[in-house]
């Protein structure tokens, strides 16, 4: 029974790992969208430019979901229907087109709006509390349950 239990627990823990990476995966439907919406390309140069466009769209979306709409409540500039959000998204795209890195674009918005503009605080310094506490609870709980289940199953049967 003990080995089976271990297998079960291992299986569950193993499930967490891909789940974490998948959570970091971002929606790239805007890239699909751009590709779908485009007319049939004729030359490889056109193909390249379409590919570049869709990469730019995907990068814009990936950044836009992380930036808070300044005039809304708690939603990103990707989701917000407000005009300012649309212009902020354009700023993201313009800066990416001009060759800035994702980090530089984020830094630009932080310099204008403060850290408030980031929908997920940077995992650095005190902010780590936000990320580590829930993980600690989960890991501690798993260990606790493993210990407790072992102790309770080894108690003499009634």
């Amino acid at each position: 029974m003990i080995t089976r239990r271990r297998v079960m627990i291992c299986a569950m823990v193993a499930l967490v790992a891909p789940a974490v990476t998948m959570a970091q995966h971002v929606r790239t439907d805007s890239a699909d969208r751009a590709a779908r919406g485009a007319a049939m390309p004729r030359s490889s140069a056109q193909l390249d430019s379409i590919r570049a466009d869709s990469v730019l769209e995907a990068r814009t979306t990936r950044l836009a979901v992380q930036l808070r709409c300044a005039v809304c409540q708690g939603i990103s500039i990707q989701e917000s229907p407000s005009s300012l959000a649309r212009e902020m998204r354009e700023v993201v795209k313009d800066q990416l087109r001009a060759g800035r890195s994702d980090a530089e674009v984020k830094a630009y918005f932080v310099s204008k709006y403060g850290e408030w503009i980031l929908l997920a605080p940077t995992a650095r310094g005190f902010n780590l509390v936000l990320y580590v506490l829930p993980a600690l609870l989960l890991i501690g709980g798993l260990v606790g349950i493993a210990v407790v289940v072992r102790r309770w199953t080894s108690a003499p049967a009634p």
């Binding site: 569950m12 499930l15 967490v16 789940a19 974490v20 998948m22 959570a23 970091q24 979901v65 992380q66 808070r68 708690g74 939603i75 990103s76 403060g114 850290e115 408030w116 503009i117 980031l118 929908l119 997920a120 605080p121 310094g125 005190f126 902010n127 936000l130 990320y131 829930p134 989960l138």
Partner: peptide, 24 residues
């Protein structure tokens, strides 16, 4: 209170943290 800075905690944080738990 601790850092004296206003931060936001929104969808990217909650999605990343809760998805594994929900799937489990």
């Amino acid at each position: 209170a601790v850092r004296g800075v206003k931060v936001s905690v929104g969808e990217p944080f909650f999605d990343r943290m809760s998805l594994p738990l929900l799937v489990l």
